[in-house]
């Protein structure tokens, strides 16, 4: 391999990590502000302009806190857990394109790579919950495992519908297939199911079972303090970014905003709109019961996603260019 390409890729990967950190900071602040305004309060106001420096203050606090490992915790997994949760989320971002062909690795199997990486995340959450030697986090870990596994299935089946329509698993191709009409219009049921499952996959309210603060204290990360807790938070925000990015790429036309010329600006705009919508959901809804949530996936979402796949298959074979 040529040294120049290697260097570019390395720089790109580093840049990606910086972007991720930036995203976490922005989202941390924006979530507080948005939920605050939903609650009819202004949110953070004291640090900088409208509290814009609050995430930095939090980061300083987390860095300076004592790094507590519980006495009877499984030390190896206690360390490994946050890493296993956060690294796949970072890796998924490597294939997500920002503009046509502009990704760290615009591979032909991008769609499945993202899902493969998302499948690893539950392991991280389960390790986090298991290793803390705490009953709350244990219950949270088991919930997390059950939830993430059962919600991956309808998500993947819906993605198969997209694959069928676009004829390619390369994310750039999928987006370019939506240059005029988005898949959100062509497959609205798919979008609905994908949105629900994506919210569940990123452990956001109303599907925040693993950390259910009113039931399980802090769920999986009850025993985490300091920067390890920060890593768990980072994993969650990154999962949210990946999930929203997938929604934008697969259904909302990515960088296309027909009839305007395609631009990465549209993608970033849509990305943050979707994330704001997810925060809005958090500000509105109560948490689902854990067994209702399982039922929802197995009884309704999986059959619905299969029906969607069948519908798409029929339409795609009947009408050319669907």
């Amino acid at each position: 391999m040529n040294a120049r390409i290697f260097l570019t890729q390395l720089l790109g990967a580093l840049g990606l990590i910086v972007i991720l950190g930036f995203n976490v900071i922005i989202m941390d602040w924006w979530e507080r502000k948005l939920v605050g305004h939903i609650h009819r309060r202004p949110g953070p106001m004291h640090t900088g302009w409208h509290g814009i420096l609050q995430p930095f203050a939090d980061m300083l606090k987390m860095l300076s806190k004592e790094d507590i490992v519980p006495d009877r915790a499984d030390r190896l997994f206690f360390w490994l857990g946050p890493a296993v949760a956060v690294v796949p989320a970072f890796m998924a971002l490597a294939v997500l394109p920002l503009a046509p062909g502009f990704a760290l690795a615009d591979i032909g199997n991008g769609l499945f790579f993202v899902f493969a990486m998302q499948t690893i995340m539950p392991f991280g959450y389960t390790l986090i919950g298991w290793s803390g030697h705490n009953k709350w986090s244990l219950v949270g870990a088991l919930r997390s495992a059950a939830q993430l596994i059962s919600y991956e299935i309808p998500m993947l089946i819906v993605a198969l519908g997209i694959l069928l329509a676009a004829g390619s698993a390369r994310l750039t191709d999928i987006v370019n297939a939506q240059s005029t009409v988005w898949y959100a219009v062509k497959q609205p049921i798919g979008l609905l199911i994908f949105f629900i499952t994506a919210v569940a996959e990123m452990n956001r309210s109303p599907f925040d079972m693993p950390e259910a603060e009113s039931e399980l204290v802090a769920g999986i990360h009850t025993e985490y303090a300091g920067m390890k807790f920060g890593l768990v938070m980072m994993a969650e925000y990154t999962a949210m970014l990946v999930g929203s990015w997938m929604i934008v790429l697969l259904f909302l036309g990515g960088w296309h905003l027909w009839p305007l010329p395609p631009s990465p600006v549209w993608l970033v705009l849509k990305l943050y709109l979707v994330q704001s919508g997810i925060i809005w959901l958090r500000g509105t809804y109560l948490r689902l019961r854990v067994d209702t949530m399982m039922e929802m996936s197995w009884k309704y979402l999986i059959p619905a996603s299969l029906a969607n796949l069948m519908l798409v298959g029929v339409l795609a074979t009947t009408f050319k260019g669907f």
């Binding site: 305004h37 009819r40 309060r41 106001m45 500000g283 809804y285």
Partner: peptide, 21 residues
């Protein structure tokens, strides 16, 4: 009911805040 809830919070999101500061 879900949509109604979203409309309630959406209206409040754009409205005034009630803090004493």
């Amino acid at each position: 009911g879900l949509l109604k809830g979203l409309s309630v919070t959406g209206r409040r999101m754009l409205g005034k805040t009630e803090c004493d500061m």
